[in-house]
Computed example of a mutant assay.
Amino acid sequence: MITRREYLKLSAAAGVALAISPKRLLADDSPRALVTRAIPGTSEQLPVVGLGSSASFARVAGEGDAARIRDILQTLVREGGRVFDTAPGYGASEEVAGRVAQEAGIADRLFWATKLNVAGRGGGQADPAAARAQLDASFARIGKSPIDLVQVHNLGDVATQLAILREARAAGRVRYIGLTTTFEQQYAELERHMREEDIDFIGVDYAVDNRTMEERIFPLAQERGIGVLAYAPFGRRRLWELVEGRTLPDWAAEHDIATWGQFFLKFVASHPAVTVATPSTSQPRNLVDNLGAATGRMPDAAVRRRMVEYIEALG
C-alpha cells in the first residue's frame, strides 16, 4: 500500500501516469465499472465521482493551457466519468473547458453542472438582465442545450436568480436547477430554501472531517428528493496535510481503497444522500486516481464510522 504522493512520483518517473487505465489504482488491481447513483426522483444514473473546476483547474484554465484541459476532460470521458462541475465565477474554467470540449467533440458526453450568480454572496440584489446574460453566456461557452444543471451560486439573491432558472427549466433550456453554498453562515438559509423551493440539487461542502451536512441538510435532501453534489471532499488541503507522510490502514484494502484520495472520496460518495462528489484537479493522473473511488466495494455505515474514528485519531 503506497501513498498518493508516492504513487504519483513513481508514475511520473516511469512515464505511466495514464497507463493505469482502466484499472484506476484499485487495491486488488482489477478493472471495474464506475459505481453510479440515481438523481432523486429519476432513473438517470450518474457516476458517484466527477470533476470540479475550481482551485488548480481554474489556475490552469486561467493560464490558457488548453492542452492540459483537453487532456483531463478526455480522461474523464474515457474513464467513464460524466459530471463536470464549473461556474462563471471560477475564472476561465467554464469558458476554456466549454471551448475545449466542443473542439474535442465531447461536450454532449458530459453532464454539465454550472452556476448563476451576478449578485455575489453578500446579500446584494441581482440585476435580472445581467443574470440572464450570464446564463446565455454559459450556453454559448458550453455549446450544449439543454444544460444539465444550473445552480444559484452561494445563495446569491435566490429570489431573483432562482426564478430565472425556473423559467429556463420550464422552457426546456435547463434540465435541473438548484442552490449551492460552502459557507457555514448560509446553512440555515439553504435549509429554508430546501423546504420552500422546488429545486433538484444542492451543492455543499462535505468531507470525512467536515460532517455538518449529516445533521440536518442531508436528511432534508433525502426527505425532499434533492440531489447532492459534494464539494471540497479533501477538506481543501486539510486532509492532505493531516495524512502527510502516513500510509493507509491495512483494512483500507478490504474496501478497494488504494490511496488516501480514494479513502477520502469513498467516505463522501458512500453517504446515501450524496449523488456525486466533485473533487477538483488539473492532473489527469489524479483524476484517474479519484475515479478509482467510484469502483469496487463501497463503505457501509460501520466502515464509515471506522474511517471517521481513524481520521479523528490522527488529529
Rank of each mutant, 00 (worst) to 15 (best):
A253G: 04
A253L: 10
V274Q: 13
Q262Y: 07
A301L: 12
R237I: 02
G225H: 11
K266G: 06
L242D: 06
V303F: 05
E223G: 04
P272F: 08
L291S: 12
T281V: 06
A273W: 09
V276G: 08
A293W: 07
V303W: 04
H255L: 14
A294G: 14
R304C: 13
T259W: 04
T247W: 06
S270P: 12
F263E: 03
P272I: 04
L265C: 05
Y231N: 14
R236F: 04
L242G: 07
R236Q: 13
R297N: 03
F267M: 00
T275E: 10
T259R: 11
A230F: 05
R236T: 12
M298D: 01
L242N: 03
Q283S: 14
P249A: 05
A301W: 05
G227P: 08
W260D: 04
A294D: 10
P284E: 11
W251L: 01
A232Q: 14
G296L: 06
E254C: 03
T275K: 10
A294F: 11
L265D: 03
A252W: 04
L291Q: 11
W260R: 06
F234T: 00
G225S: 10
Q283G: 00
Q262S: 09
T295V: 11
H271Q: 11
A302C: 01
A269Q: 13
G296Y: 07
R224N: 05
A269G: 06
V243E: 02
D300E: 08
L248Y: 06
S282Q: 10
A302L: 13
G225L: 07
R238C: 00
A258Y: 13
R297D: 01
A232N: 14
A273Y: 09
R224L: 02
P299K: 08
G296W: 07
L265W: 03
V276P: 13
I226P: 03
I226R: 01
I257F: 07
T295H: 03
V276M: 11
N286E: 15
V288E: 14
V228Y: 09
R297P: 04
Y231G: 12
D300S: 10
L291I: 10
A294K: 12
E244A: 15
G292R: 08
L239E: 07
F264P: 02
P233I: 01
N286Y: 14
P279V: 00
A252M: 02
D256C: 12
A269S: 15
R305F: 00
N290I: 08
H271F: 05
P233L: 02
R304Q: 15
I226N: 01
A293Q: 02
R297G: 00
V274I: 15
A230E: 04
F263R: 02
D250Y: 01
